[in-house]
Amino acid sequence: MPEPAVNETTDWLSRLLEFAPVRGRLDLRCVFGAPWRIEQPHADSGEMPYHVVLAGSATLEDPENGSSIRLKAGDILVFPKGASHVLHDGSGASPAPTREREAASIVVSENTGAGARLDMLCGHFVVTAAHERLLRNHLPERLIGRSSGADEETSRQLKGLATLMRAITDTETLGAHAMLDALSTALFTVALRLASESRDPSPGLLSLAGSPRLAPALEAIFRDPARAWTLPELAQLCTMSRATFVRLFREKLGASASDLLTDIRMTMAANELRKPSAHVAAVAGIVGYQSEAAFQRAFKKHMGVTPTHWRKLSGHHGHGEDPAT
């Protein structure tokens, strides 16, 4: 059966999350009074911790340069590569003791601090190893989405999601856990949108998306990754020379257009090979390879196993699980 046609209006971010779906999980709600401190170790493979400040403020220690970053109400912090991190109230005082209690729909972490109040949602996003490669290869170590600096619509959406999640954690609502996880999943998309609007995003997809000159190439690659794109074609879409395109693309993404295209194609292939009726030769064609042998080599180099082995392993795992884990 032929693949359904791609909607020409589908944007790159929607396509990214179609290729590499992410599920959200809300873990707990932190309600602290200063002084407080959170030390979170490196996340497990396939997990990306996040924090949403509902009220008050928090200070993130930046291990790269020893500085600190202040987070305010309406900000969301995500660690796409699962990095360990420390959040605190900024006072430098020893943190007050904490305790956890079961609330209506969530675990609440509280302390005995009497200072400035913090209300924050903490959770993580989950992605399989096959999908994780595409996201971790092209997202920064840390991304911060600030609702105060975003366009009005994006800011309104983040505030709306956070307000609804807080309201659900306050009451015993039928289906609360399912609702919180679904809203948590939506947070990932909003976080990427907010971070892409940053004035100085780190090299990666968000920096690339924030470049008006290169955006046409990004949209084209995600809209039709199976096409045999050439550098002159992509450069022409961006109305620049081939040399300028290559230089600017790598500068913004931190990788070449070919690297990005291969990552997308291999993620697509891994998804296709999960289907019981999938044949390697057909999958090769679907993701843009004229030669099955070339596809076999590229897939093994990228995924660590042959397409046939991947397909066999996929048959022993449930839907959404990764045979490489």
Rank of each mutant, 00 (worst) to 15 (best):
F245A: 00
S277L: 02
S202V: 02
F188P: 05
E39R: 08
V22G: 02
L60A: 01
T262M: 10
G145I: 10
P4G: 02
E321Q: 10
R25V: 06
G24L: 06
A114L: 14
R70H: 09
S155L: 13
D44G: 14
H319P: 08
A104S: 09
L206S: 08
P201H: 02
L16I: 01
D170C: 14
M179R: 15
Q296L: 09
F188Y: 15
E152T: 15
D181R: 11
G318R: 13
G82P: 04
S68T: 08
R156N: 14
R297S: 12
A167L: 15
K81W: 01
H131A: 04
G149F: 07
Q40L: 07
L208V: 05
D11R: 15
E292L: 01
R136Y: 05
P21T: 02
S314K: 01
L218S: 03
A191Q: 08
K312S: 13
G90R: 10
A257W: 06
A129F: 12
A103P: 12
T189N: 13
G304L: 09
R23C: 02
A96L: 05
A104I: 06
T171N: 15
D75A: 06
T189V: 13
S94W: 08
G24H: 11
I264D: 07
P95W: 02
V280W: 05
K275I: 01
D151V: 10
L231T: 12
E61N: 01
V283W: 07
A284T: 00
M303V: 07
V107T: 15
L237W: 09
A278N: 03
D224S: 15
G288N: 06
H316L: 09
P140W: 00
K301Q: 15
F299R: 04
L71M: 07
V6D: 07
Q296A: 12
Q290P: 11
E64D: 09
L208F: 09
T189R: 15
G288H: 10
R297Q: 10
A58M: 05
F188C: 08
R117T: 08
A116Y: 07
I76S: 08
T9K: 15
V305C: 12
